[in-house]
């Protein structure tokens, strides 16, 4: 482990655009900007429906905060292993690149396994996507996030496979950086979900119906 800053290796293609940024990286940031609107819609819908369910179960009855906190910590640490993978390829250390890519995929898989367990446990407690407004908005929001994490794991394993075949070299480090951007964004979304959905309590008592204005 070194305390030396890593220079940014972009390859020649990054320098031929008039923005000085490669088109691939620019496209990923455009995509992530649009994803803010997608997840914003899902989170807003959850907030709108919160406390408006006529029947239970409600969040307080089924959330397991210690368990979700550990899941959140796992996903947060996967962001660290992702940047370590990027730093490794930028200095040409392919063995560590593969190690950190696998570690990130493993942490992501643990998060998904935890989410599957959580969903199963909620269903056993009587909350499905059709039970009430809370169930619908919760499963759609966290389900969409889970799909994003799963796609990220597929990306990471593809990168690992490319590296194993010797097709992911230092001059192509931007490929890892772009996959990393997607991975960190998914982590960033979970930071918001964990706070807004799990930690901030519902504004009304369970079972109380609040009608929408108008």
């Amino acid at each position: 482990m070194t305390d030396v800053a890593v220079p940014v290796a972009h390859g020649d293609h990054a320098l031929i655009t008039n923005t000085g940024v490669s088109n691939e990286k620019l496209a990923m940031w455009c995509f992530l900007g649009s994803e803010c609107l997608l997840f914003g819609a899902l989170i807003s819908t959850y907030i709108l429906y919160r406390g408006r369910s006529v029947t239970g179960p409600n969040p307080k009855q089924i959330y397991d905060i210690p368990y979700t906190s550990i899941s959140s910590f796992v996903l947060l640490m996967s962001s660290l292993t992702m940047v370590l993978a990027l730093a490794s390829i930028q200095r040409g250390d392919y063995r560590r690149l593969r190690l950190w890519l696998l570690a990130t995929a493993l942490l992501g898989s643990s998060f998904i396994a935890g989410q599957v367990y959580e969903f199963t446990s909620f269903i056993r407690k009587g909350l499905t996507i059709k039970t009430n407004l809370f169930g619908s908005s919760f499963f759609v929001l966290t389900g969409f996030h889970g799909v994003h994490v799963t796609l990220g794991i597929v990306m990471l394993l593809s990168l690992w496979n490319l590296s194993m075949r010797g097709r992911l070299t230092q001059d192509r480090s931007e490929v890892v950086e772009i996959a990393g951007l997607y991975w960190h964004f998914v982590d960033l979304v979970w930071i918001v979900i964990f706070t807004v959905i799990y930690l901030i309590p519902s504004p009304t008592h369970p079972g109380v119906l609040h009608t929408l204005p108008g």
């Binding site: 482990m1 070194t2 800053a5 940014v8 000085g20 730093a87």
Partner: peptide, 10 residues
């Protein structure tokens, strides 16, 4: 652009 942080900083 500026250089990215080091591993220790991450």
């Amino acid at each position: 652009e500026h250089a990215h942080p080091s591993e220790a900083q991450y």
